[in-house]
Design a protein around this nucleic acid. Structure first.
Lengths: 350, 350
DNA sequence: GTGAAAGCGCTAACAA
DNA sequence: TTGTTAGCGCTTTCAC
């Protein structure tokens, strides 16, 4: 007997015909069965599933997508997967998507219109059924591509007047008010804000909400105490340095995100300042890390899970129930203060 | 004139026929053109591309995949996307993949065989052409699914005797030796090791390499000074507490990864111990954060970019050039020490 | 060098 | 309830 060089028997992967033959039904019945059509009798359903299991059959997604016109893929565009906020967001989104039978295509825009254009192209090329744009950037023009092709979208903090586009509004205001209130209660009145890059919607909204909150509490905001940083650790270090260079310094710093705040913690330490004794620091996001900084970071929590849920739900509705007149086109995600160790009463005499 | 409710004209998305018609060629020529077949004359090539651009045509990937049998998707399974090491790895892998026209499917195993099984299923269902298993886990049995279906794979730190499976070996030894040497040079002799969970290959290899390095340097390893943690911040805190509970304590701690080390930094601070004056700490990975801890973390760098490159290359070879007799089936990624601020000479008298 | 036509594996319309 | 069949949009022989 002649043995071939390979020890794996060459068996063609089973297709719908193989299953049909084994179950002694037509391929239509197999198709109906795997799509849970109620029109198949119990007897045949059982026989088909048995054949499917016996053969370890998996339907070919490309054939399915080709004929159904549905890819069951959602795209998610984040700003930067390297910022811990986003992996946590992606994970939540993915879990929900997979539970609903969708796969996801992840892409980082890096807040760069050119890169975003590439992301959008990838999404288009792979025929995603919807895109969650959670990059918080102000690069809407690039998204026209998606609008033109009638791809459902959900945007964070930006409205687009198109029936296929939903919006998630983030209520930073509540959390920021709580933060200011908290600082006020501790005795602070000199509060600075390290903002995010103005090219981000989120950064601008947060900054505005800070100003409003300060005003509401009757506190003056000093121009020099609102500094544009870039939402990175380095940016926080730099922002803190700018504040330190001032003759009149704040006793507390609210940061536009946790990364900035962690940068501040670091810079303060290097300067020999103790947090919270010498200066109080508040972040925003409440990334997993926030609990483990030195000291643990007081921060405004923005639930990634809520955000992911809203984003997925927005897309799901658009795709699965587009005609529903009472479809939600606007979602709201709230924030709230989490008090940890980076805030305390200002040192006496300040 | 009657106006319809929608203002968007209903134009069917262009397909290969539309392009062919506009360019006045057959669909075969269009197909050849978009696949860069050299058999098309310059004249027609130009005409076809012009039509493609004019129509903003994108080939349907499902049709392509269906007929070609190739999905141009690679899967990547990581341990936990929430550990900063992995997003950095994913990003590198994605960049390379996209540059080569591949899309990627990301999945986290959470070091749980059940979850891994789900990941593998998703990969199979979506017909990925290869899978990079960079979860460092010891759940190989689950991977049989992939092996049986002849899906090319690349594994980190594990060999599987199958022609379709490549391996990436990580040379921790070099970096760990450098670390021990560095500590020795500073005057340390009492060195502890906070290991990773033994269910991870990486953790076991790292621990063994630590033991070997200590032995090579003629240093004794104490059983109580090698503690199994879990590669998380919390785990580092707990591990440090165990060390502190001992009557004989180490003057330096080497950690199996940076997260553990950062946890130690945190715990030491809470205990009132100063790093590096009272105790030296070394991490492993060199995640972006490491530069921004307090103090900046001395750590053993493991290049995510190198790892990603090797993983992609392994898969690419298997898929695009499987018959090549001199295909590399084994890759090596090296490590090296990065000295920052968390190591110093031990306090006098210890 | 170019085109006609078969068919990839599936869904859905229509028949029975 | 079940089966037959016509494509979905593309690649790839095979002729010319």
């Amino acid at each position: 007997m002649v043995r071939k060089g390979t020890h794996k028997p060459v068996v063609k992967t089973p297709d719908i015909r193989t299953v049909a033959a084994l179950a002694k039904v037509s391929i239509a019945t197999v198709s109906r069965t795997i799509n849970n059509s109620p029109a198949v009798s119990e007897r045949l359903t059982k026989r088909v599933w048995q054949a499917i299991e016996q053969l370890d059959y998996l339907p070919n997604p490309h054939a399915r997508s080709l004929v159904s016109g549905r890819s069951r893929i959602f795209g998610i565009i984040v700003e930067n997967i390297t910022n811990p906020f986003f992996p946590e967001l992606i994970q939540s989104f993915e879990e929900i998507a997979v539970a609903h039978g969708y796969e996801i295509l992840v892409s980082s825009s890096n807040s760069d219109p050119t890169v975003l254009a590439t992301c959008v192209r990838r999404m288009l090329e792979r025929k995603v059924e919807g895109v969650a744009v959670l990059s918080f950037g102000a690069e809407e023009p690039v998204l026209d591509q998606l609008v033109h092709r009638d791809i459902p979208m959900v945007l964070a903090e930006f409205r687009l007047d198109d029936p296929k586009v939903s919006t998630i509004l983030l209520d930073y205001s509540t959390g920021i008010h709580e933060a200011i209130h908290h600082l006020l209660g501790l005795g602070h009145r000199r509060i600075a804000f390290l903002a995010g890059p103005h090219k981000l919607h989120s950064a601008i909204t947060r900054e505005n909400d800070f100003r409003t909150a300060m005003q509401d509490e009757g506190l003056p905001t000093q121009k020099k105490w609102i500094i544009e940083c870039d939402h990175t650790l380095k940016g926080g270090v730099a922002g803190f340095a700018q504040l330190q260079a001032l003759s009149a310094r704040p006793s507390a710093i609210v940061c536009s995100n946790d990364m900035t705040a962690i940068g501040v913690l670091r810079a303060a330490y290097m300067e020999g300042l103790r947090v919270p004794d010498d200066i109080s620091v508040i972040g925003l996001d409440d990334i997993d890390f926030a609990e483990f900084t030195l000291p643990p970071l007081t921060t405004i929590r923005l639930s990634r899970a809520d955000l992911a849920r809203s984003a997925f739900e927005a897309l799901r509705q658009q795709v699965e129930d587009p005609a529903n007149p009472k479809m939600l086109r606007e979602f709201l995600v709230s924030t709230s203060l989490v008090v940890r160790g980076s805030t305390a009463a200002p040192a006496a005499g300040i």
